[in-house]
């Protein structure tokens, strides 16, 4: 890999009540790289993101962020440098869309005008018309709209690392494809058109259970099975992977659908 690692996960294990959830996971995310965590429901993807964010503490192993052990970070500083798109959005019900998105910039004491213009351009980026959506409350949004607000919130303070937990799961295929393409563009070009809200090339840990999405977006794909790393490979290598779990996922790529004659 050309660039420095932004995130290093070394031999991390985590158990709840004696039941192992993560087993000896090692994974490095380099700057500008998107590593996709792929796995079935319950394979430990969300738990791994939570461990990175410091919401759960591994029983063994080490996590380093920007070269420094996570345990030596002030947890507040650490979390504000990671934009977290929570599975099912996790928006604050008593705040408007604008207040939700502007949270971390506000916590970081940006001036209000700067927060407002940032919120506006982020809303445009995720395909929500600011005038229409800014003042709404989460309960006035559809599932997919909530998810997009969650994405905008994670991007708001321009964090160097993004943690995305199935960010596109609740979207219709057209909007999903649109956001996937936008995500790729950010990654490939390093930055969007000047003035665009999503600036420098971000590193990302991206959770999905959709193998197609994993291959499309990942610099590398990490396949989790029962909390253990099953395959860690580039998309091209992944297509040739032959573990039973990888084969099971790859089988879902085959097109079984045929129109009735």
């Amino acid at each position: 890999m050309p660039s420095d690692p932004i995130l290093e996960i070394r031999n991390v294990s985590y158990a709840i009540g004696g039941r192992p959830i993560l087993r000896d996971i090692s994974l490095t995310v380099h700057e500008g790289e998107t590593v996709v965590l792929l796995g079935r429901s319950g394979s430990g993807k969300t738990t791994l993101l939570k461990a990175v964010n410091g919401l759960v503490h591994p029983n063994s192993g080490e996590i380093r962020f920007e070269g420094k052990p996570a345990l030596e970070w002030d947890p507040i500083r650490l979390r504000r440098r990671m934009g977290y798109v929570i599975q099912d959005a996790g928006l604050f019900p008593h705040w408007t869309v604008a207040a939700n998105i502007g949270l971390v910039p506000r916590l970081e004491n940006w001036n209000p005008e700067k927060v407002a213009s940032r919120v506006e351009s982020l809303l445009r980026d995720v395909g929500l018309e600011p005038a229409e959506f800014e003042g709404r409350y989460p309960r006035q949004l559809s599932g997919g709209q909530k998810q997009r607000v969650g994405i905008a919130r994670a991007l708001a303070a321009d964090p160097p690392l993004l943690l995305l937990d199935e960010p596109f799961a609740a979207l219709d295929p057209i909007t999903r494809f649109d956001l996937q393409r936008q995500f790729l563009e950010i990654r490939r070009s390093g930055e969007t058109e000047t003035g665009g809200a999503t600036a420098a090339a971000k590193s990302a840990l991206f959770v999905t259970h959709d193998v197609r999405e994993a291959l499309m977006l990942g610099s590398r794909v990490a396949l989790l099975k029962d909390g253990a790393m099953d395959v860690l490979a580039t998309p091209a290598e992944f297509l040739a992977a032959r573990t039973p779990e990888a084969l099971a996922f790859l089988a879902s790529l085959e097109d079984h659908w045929r129109p009735h004659e």
Partner: peptide
């Protein structure tokens, strides 16, 4: 307060005091 809302506040990097007063 919904545990997921509280967890989301922690994940965004809010301090305990901010979580209490703002959420």
């Amino acid at each position: 307060v919904d545990a997921t809302v509280r967890e989301s506040a922690v994940a965004m990097g809010m301090t305990q005091r901010q979580i209490l007063w703002q959420v």
